[in-house]
Amino acid sequence: MESVILQIAARHMRPLLIILSVIVLYRGHNEPGGGFIGGLMLGAAYILYAMAFGVGKTQNRILFSPINLTALGLLIALLSGVPALLSGMPFMTGEWVTFFANSAFELKLGTPLLFDVGVFFAVAGMLMLVMFSIMEE
C-alpha cells in the first residue's frame, strides 16, 4: 500500500511518538504512564512507519532487530535488580539517586526507573516482533 498521506504522516509522527514515549516512560513512576505504555507507543511509532513504507525498509532503519531489542530490555530489567544485591539487600530493592534536588530540573533516577526502561524496550521489541511477522509478505 503506497499512500503519500500516510507516508508523510508516518515520517513526522515517528520522532514525535518516540519523544512522547520517553516522556510517558519517565513520568510513569508517580503518575499515569510507565514502561508498558511507553513501550507500546515506541512500538506504534515503528509499526506506523512499517505500514507506510513496508517492513523491510523499516528494519533497515532501526538499530536493533526487534528480537534483540526485547532481549536488551530483559537484560536492563534484570540489571536493575543487581545494585540491591551489591549493597547486601534482597534482589530488586529500590535504590534512588536525586540530581539537582529542589530545583526546577529535579531529576530522580533509580532502579525502579531502570526496570521500567527494561520493560519499555522489551514491550516495544515484542510488539514489533509480532506485528512485523504478521505484516510480512
Binding site: 508498558f36 514491550v123 515484542m126 509480532v130 511477522s133 504478521i134 509478505e137
Partner: peptide, 24 residues
Amino acid sequence: ILTAIVIGLGVTAFALVLVYRFYS
C-alpha cells in the same frame, strides 16, 4: 489487572500470529 492485561496482550498477539500462520 494491568499485569493480567499485559499477559493477555502477549498471549493474544501470539495466538494471532499462530492463526495467521495456520491460515497461510
